[in-house]
Amino acid sequence: MKGMTLIVKTITRLLLGFIFVFSVSIILFGHITPGGGFAGGVMLACVFILLVLAFGKKTALDIVSEKAISIWDSVGSLSFLEIALLGFFGGFFFKDFFSKGSPLKLFSGGTILWSNISIGIKVFASLFAAFMALAIFRVRRER
């Protein structure tokens, strides 16, 4: 894949940053506004998918290599599991051990913010990995 025309590349270059920031904000404010880890993670993956479509897969893989995707994938899920396990300090698995904070502020809602972040990482990594697995795949006809 070489990438698309100049028009697409320019527009993509302009848009990418905004989509990226929007997706991060969706992840971070997931506990007080609509959205959350999954929706934000999908958008974050879309940033890279757009990059692949517009510039070719080499550009995207230079930023996040296949190995890095695999690592992020595991890190996202492990950190979510860790939040659950840390709940043991509060007495129960998945116990909300953080301070609740004042409502409708960023740092409120206990562990939900941190869970959303790790879910976002996990969803981004797995979706992008799935996309790359399908995009890189080359059909070799045997027979």
């Binding site: 899920s77 492990l78 599991l81 396990l85 698995f93």
Partner: peptide, 20 residues
């Protein structure tokens, strides 16, 4: 009891990392 689920799940995610 929750560790019955958490342990193999954690191991499942740890294995791809550690096998690098």
């Amino acid at each position: 009891l929750p560790l019955f689920i958490a342990l193999p799940l954690g191991a499942g995610f740890l294995i791809p990392l550690i096998s690098l």
